[in-house]
Simulated assay, not measured.
Amino acid sequence: MKLRRRKKFAAEVATSSLNDIMFFLLLFFLIVSTVANPNVIKLLLPKAASSQQLSKKQVTLSVDANKQYFVDKQPVSPQNLEEELKTIMTGIEEPTVVVRFDKTLTVQDLVDVLQTGAKLNIRMVMATSK
């Protein structure tokens, strides 16, 4: 008795490359979704003859290695720092102070300066080098 195998043709779909395609599509849509901002409404704004500018003045506070304080290159004593910052920041919408601090000073000196800014509700930004 001779047994013969049936040769039946079965159709197959090669899906090995679909994984790569789906990965690239997913990556493309993730990148595009981070770049696109859906909350932006494009408007043509009217023109005005005079414009009002908000005063966003940045003040630089520098402290050198000898603990000498400078507000915009003007020497200030540490005791008068709070009063000086208060007078400079009057009338400014979002007061911002760029703090330039010597790296040899202690962290406590930096915290004292930052507490002064927090007391006056001033945004303090630390300047660093690369």
Rank of each mutant, 00 (worst) to 15 (best):
L54S: 10
L81W: 03
L27K: 00
P38E: 06
K8E: 14
E84Q: 10
L45E: 12
V125E: 13
D72I: 01
F29W: 14
V13I: 14
I31P: 02
R4H: 07
Q52V: 12
K7E: 09
T96I: 14
E84M: 05
Q52S: 06
F28I: 06
R6F: 09
R100W: 00
N37E: 10
L30N: 08
L43K: 15
K2E: 10
K47L: 11
A48F: 10
S129K: 15
S55K: 14
A36T: 13
K8L: 10
I21K: 10
N19G: 12
V40T: 12
I31K: 06
F28N: 01
V125H: 02
S77V: 04
Q53C: 13
T34P: 01
A49D: 09
P46T: 06
S50Y: 01
M1H: 11
S129M: 10
L26G: 13
S55W: 02
F101Q: 04
V59G: 00
L54P: 02
K47W: 02
N37I: 04
V71C: 05
I21E: 08
Q53A: 15
G91N: 09
L26W: 04
I31N: 01
M89C: 06
E83P: 00
P46F: 07
L27F: 11
L81F: 02
I92F: 04
R100C: 00
N80W: 05
Q115R: 11
R6T: 12
T116E: 02
I122L: 08
S77G: 09
